[in-house]
Design a protein around this nucleic acid. Structure first.
Length: 138
DNA sequence: GCCAACGTTGGC
DNA sequence: GCCAACGTTGGC
């Protein structure tokens, strides 16, 4: 089981939208590194859902429902998508500011590679963000 | 709206 | 293969 983080601008596609739809196709990736990460996703891997530009926080968890297949929004065979479904909305979003000030998250790809839109997350980073976003642990 | 940090493109 | 110019992302 691997862990990931994906970014979405909430005014384009938010966690609310994913919950409303029940399942969503993660399309539009046009960056090789992000593409490679999409291809490495396996069924049932867990994905942190981050709102960029507005919100600036991890707002929920999603799960990989279908592994990488060709991006239907382009004829270019280089690009792929995965399907995601919502699993859990965090009780309270874990903000970028919070992540930046937590020493345990110094090495997180979200900070180290701020422009990457699909990135791997270490299990301990994933667990920590989940607990920070859950009321009973705060 | 600005700018830093990239990634891509194209001339040489 | 290098690098300047340009485009994009995303935080502030």
């Amino acid at each position: 089981m691997n862990h990931w983080l994906v970014k979405s601008e909430p005014f384009v596609y938010s966690y609310d939208d994913l919950q409303r739809d029940g399942r969503g196709t993660w399309d539009g990736v046009r960056n090789y590194q992000a593409r490679n990460n999409l291809q490495a996703m396996r069924l049932n891997d867990l994905v942190l859902f981050y709102h960029s530009n507005e919100g600036l926080a991890v707002v929920g968890v999603a799960q990989v429902m279908k592994e990488a297949y060709p991006d239907p929004t382009t004829d270019d065979a280089r690009w792929v998508v995965v399907d995601l479904a919502p699993v859990l909305r965090l009780d309270r979003p874990v903000t970028l500011a919070q992540i930046k000030t937590d020493n345990r998250l110094n090495e997180i790809a979200l900070i180290k590679q701020s422009r990457l839109s699909v990135m791997p997350i270490k299990p301990q980073e994933f667990d920590l963000i989940l607990s920070l976003g859950t009321h009973e642990n705060n």
